[in-house]
Amino acid sequence: MATETNSAEAASAPGMPQLDFSTWGNQIFWLVIALIAIYFVLSRMALPRIAAILAERQGTITSDLAAAEDLKVKAQEAEAAYDKALVDARAEAHRIVGEAKAEIQSDLDAAIAKADAEIAAKAAESEKAIAEIRAGALDAVKEVAADTAKEIVSAMGGKADAKAISSAVGARLKG
């Protein structure tokens, strides 16, 4: 059925337009023109240009990579320097801390020694004072005891010999 309608509509063309050889010359002519045009556009202009772009990009990438490598090396050097500086600084800090500590210690020691000495002096002084006070107190006790003993002796009716009483009191106090 398709053949009848086809041949009715397009009487000049057979069923398959591809097999209509009357149009081949025309198609081949235009195809050759198109191919030549594309060939010249590509081989003279487009392909060299794209090749240049690709080569340029490759060059850029290579040089960028080299630059990056350089920068990386530099960064590593800088890092090493930084680490070294850090270590140095730490050692220095340790040293300073040690010195300060020693200084403080010596100051402290001196202060402690001074304080000790002062304390010792003060203690000796106060001991002396205490001893004086004690001696004073002992004398007073002796006097009071002698007076009391004289009064008691006189009250008992005896005649008190001052010398005997004081020696007796002294013997008692010692005992």
Binding site: S22, T23, G25, N26, Q27, F29, W30, L31, I33, A34, A37, I38, V41, L42
Partner: peptide, 21 residues
């Protein structure tokens, strides 16, 4: 259709050339 007649085939081949360009 003679050998130089601009046909629809020629037109679309031309479009292909333009697309490539």
């Amino acid at each position: 259709i003679t050998w130089y007649t601009p046909t629809n085939a020629a037109l679309w081949m031309g479009f292909a050339v333009i697309a490539v360009i």
